[in-house]
């Protein structure tokens, strides 16, 4: 994967397939401490310990449409090449937490990519699932919660084009405002 936002899109897809209704994406970024961490928490089906062990194997997948599952192995590769790692905690019936840690300033750390566009597509492309996106940058934080957005929208579908555009700009401006450089 070329950038971190693609990984987020990809890992979240696992959560949606596991019937999650609430998916939290929590980013902790601290260039000074050379730290970048992405945590994805869902309330989906979860996995038993046997399966959890297997998901880092590229030749494991739960789907029947194809025989390989590269989402998590690719994330592990990108994390490990910066000296970081990926941990997976899962509880059958409760949900799954995936934590990917990177060295922020490592030369092999892939850039953010289009975070505002990605988060917005998750909101609009999965209107029946709720998302919390929380981006911590040094001591500042920006958080957007689709439940709050939907409440404010008062019945207007979240995937109306004007709303999609608004959410994208809102994320973009707020991330810039707290100092996030999405080109890095």
């Amino acid at each position: 994967m070329k950038d971190l936002s693609m990984h987020i899109m990809d890992i979240v897809q696992n959560s949606t397939r596991a019937n999650a209704t609430l998916i939290k994406i929590i980013v902790n970024e601290n260039p000074g401490l050379n730290m970048l961490q992405i945590k994805i928490i869902d309330n989906g089906d979860g996995m038993d310990p046997e399966i959890t062990k297997q998901v880092s194997n590229p030749f494991f997948t739960s789907r029947t449409t194809r025989k390989v599952g590269l989402g998590i192995p690719l994330l592990i590769q990108n994390a490990e090449q910066t000296g970081g790692n990926v941990s997976i905690e899962s509880d059958k019936g409760k949900g799954t937490i995936i934590t990917a840690s990177f060295q922020h300033r490592h030369i092999d750390r892939v850039p953010w990519g289009d975070i505002p566009g990605t988060i917005t597509l998750l909101f609009s492309g999965n209107p029946s699932i709720d998302f919390v996106y929380s981006h911590h940058f040094n001591n500042e934080v920006f958080e957007i919660d689709s439940r709050i957005i939907k409440k404010e929208l008062d019945g207007i579908p979240i995937n109306q084009p004007a709303i999609i555009k608004f959410i994208k700009e809102m994320i973009d401006e707020n991330l810039k405002n707290i100092g996030v450089d999405i080109n890095n």
Partner: peptide, 19 residues
């Protein structure tokens, strides 16, 4: 500091979209 979009702005545009 530049003004960034907030939930207040969303509320403001909601009615236009709704109509």
């Amino acid at each position: 500091m530049t003004k960034v979009k907030s939930l207040d702005d969303l509320r403001k545009m909601r009615d236009a979209v709704k109509s």
